[in-house]
Nucleic acid binder design. Structure first.
Lengths: 340, 340
DNA sequence: GTGAAAGCGCTAACAC
DNA sequence: GTGTTAGCGCTTTCAC
């Protein structure tokens, strides 16, 4: 494998000159530069990034710590779309991505910091970790530049990007209220998700803005899974026949809720309106089409990557980005009717 | 950042001894080993993989060259599931994954070999490239260990994994024939996909085995997209009213075909049976549920990763793996009826 | 069982 | 403009 040494020998110059020429420094005569560039092509030279990284103490790589490689996340595709966004941005830079994985027992033995330091990644993007994940604590304590997706932590070396979950939830509630619903329940994710807390907040705000009191017992957790949400919806709808609409904090959970409604011999949206959150691909293909709050997951990843590279270049980079959401009206929401 | 030098100093030994102790060599006294291990924990040491890679001339990383980060591939999810499989296997090894991307204009300037050599990846997995992709030629010529997904090239340093596309297609055809269909059309991908050629072969074999002649004009290309397939199906069904069933080489294309049928005022499966290939998530959620040939994409990735690590360890590793497919009967296929 | 020394391929002072 | 030199953190002969 060709090294700069080989080129230096062939060109009759020192390795320093080769290095300088190849890296575009100005203090090399045009003539020697040309010769060196030519020779490097001829000899089929590729720089050794390991060696370069070793001496420069940076690797031009971004570490990815994503939790969503399970069966479940294949369904909602969240991880992949975020990944696609990150990849898309990275493609325009000279950073490569290295995929760490947190879901294996073996990797769990290594701490977040170890993972990153061993590979000498310049920065990290974290996605899909819970607020009580031990890794999170480490992030804050370590001094590795880091961008969190959907977790609002902001320090000198950590930034975050998320969507406006409060406003998003409020949009959902507003939509239901505009359709005449007053008795609205919510199926949330779990308490260790930042987005859940935010969406609950938005839910309450939406109700409050229209003078509708928030009822504690109408807001339950569905753990972000279809199954749990179905169970929760079943109980809720049985116990409180006055409920005419349910806001679910994820589309997958909304599917569960729809199933629950039909299990009870009712239909969506005639008897109960259901609105989801995410706008995953299935939402459109689901029958009936799911009304939901759309968030641009790819942009989430794209922005995260951009934010991180900015952080790596300048001190004064912005420290967080909040993206907008959009209401997608499909067939699971309709005018309120009395079902009791 | 702690280095072995620091540990050596703290332990009062040479760096050689530290290196040996940390790497589990036998010729270190238990006493010093213990001390070194302890010290390394205390000092919060992480080995520098760049330095190690530089001297050992391998990086313990696997390069991933996948083409599917586009909008379209979010729909079929193929890339992600393969990725999940690779990741799952990698999690059990000490290899990390580096994501290269081929879809950007910038990266196109770098050759396959450059990409790999710069990062000093130990091996590569390629997925989603066409048989006429210039990268493919390079793979064969380079001496970088490589596993191809769904492209049958086998040399000293390249192996492949795929599913049995011939048999898969034959299963599809058999299913249709068993339902009484004799006039069966096929909508294939494109000629530069190995899987397309194989599936066509299986299609012909299936017909032949039952004495049904293959009609050239009934086998058209749909470019693996929903839109193109819809167009193709529309033409086909209009022109040849005797066709009662269509085998599509991907689920996405099958969706297009279903749409075409309904555009023509007919219904699936009463008038025309449609069978897909892949069993993507949407196939199940699609209405009506799509009958299809299922392939285990995650296993595809998992096997590729396993094969590659085996190649990296021993010379005598097996050089290809072919996975089985499975017929999934849902609602788009039914008993043949005369529609002309 | 342990250490000295060389070197992996590269960059970056510092001279000239 | 160009070369000399040192050194990034590690592994690996080769001595002892």
């Amino acid at each position: 494998m060709t090294t700069i040494k080989d080129i230096a020998r062939a060109a009759g110059v020192s390795i320093t000159t080769v290095s300088r020429a190849l890296n575009g420094y100005s203090d090399v005569s045009e003539k020697t530069r040309k010769k060196i560039i030519e020779l490097s092509k001829e000899l089929n030279y590729s720089p050794n990034t390991l060696a370069r990284g070793l001496v420069m103490n940076k690797s031009k790589t971004i570490g990815l710590l994503v939790s969503g490689f399970s069966k479940e996340s294949i369904k909602d595709n969240f991880t992949f779309e975020v990944l696609a966004g990150i990849n898309q941005y990275a493609a325009e830079t000279d950073y490569d991505l290295v995929l760490f994985n947190t879901n294996s027992t073996m990797q769990r033995e290594k701490t977040y910091t170890q993972l990153c330091r061993e590979r000498r990644v310049d920065g990290v993007i974290l996605q899909g970790i819970r607020t009580d994940d031990p890794y999170l604590q480490e992030v804050v304590e370590s001094n590795i530049p880091c961008v969190l997706i959907d977790i609002p932590v902001e320090t000198d070396n950590v930034a975050f990007v998320s969507t406006d979950n409060v406003l998003g939830a409020e949009k959902a509630v507003n939509h239901l209220i505009e359709l005449g619903h007053r008795n609205i329940a919510m199926i949330n994710g779990h308490d260790h998700a930042f987005v859940s807390r935010e969406r609950l907040k938005g839910f309450k705000q939406g109700l409050g803005a229209h003078g509708i009191p928030f009822r504690e017992e109408w807001a339950v957790n569905g753990e972000f899974t279809e199954k749990e949400a179905e169970k929760a919806a079943l109980e809720l709808l049985k116990k409180y026949p006055e409920i005419t609409a349910v806001f679910c904090a994820s589309d997958l959970m909304a599917f569960g809720a729809v199933k629950a409604v039909s299990t009870l011999g009712m239909s969506v949206p005639q008897d109960v309106s259901i609105i989801g959150y995410d706008d995953i691909l299935l939402a459109e293909y689901f029958s009936p089409g799911l009304t939901t709050i759309a968030q641009d997951r790819q942009m989430l990843g794209f922005s995260a990557a951009r934010l991180l590279t900015e952080m790596l270049q300048e001190e004064s980079a912005p420290k967080h980005i909040v993206l907008e959401t959009k209401l997608k009206i499909r067939q699971t929401t309709a005018q309120a009717r009395n079902r009791s």
